[in-house]
Amino acid sequence: MARNPVELAGATPEPSFEITMDGRVLPALPGQSIAAALWSAGILAWRTTRVNGRPRGAFCGIGSCFDCLATVNGAPNQRACLVPARPGDLVTTQEGHGRADLAV
């Protein structure tokens, strides 16, 4: 019986690379989405909601629910479950609409 998904799929991934979540350096495997890399590190929430400031992360896993919106390299509202992780990506917890810089 497999101890983890990598073992189950008989995977021998290419070397991992680093991404950063709120300053914390995490490993990501080539081909993983941002959300998958965050889940691997035990991180389940990477934004807070607009109205009540509640934590949220991936929910539907297929890009339909938009709960996993993340700010990646400064650009807000990217579906972390769809966006592939790339070496050096800077992920930051997105607060609300993620566009506070535009407020007048």
């Binding site: 607009r50 609409h97 566009r99 506070a100 535009l102 407020a103 007048v104």
Partner: peptide, 9 residues
């Protein structure tokens, strides 16, 4: 549009 802060008054 997506939800935004007040950018148009």
């Amino acid at each position: 549009t997506e939800p935004l802060p007040r950018i148009v008054r």
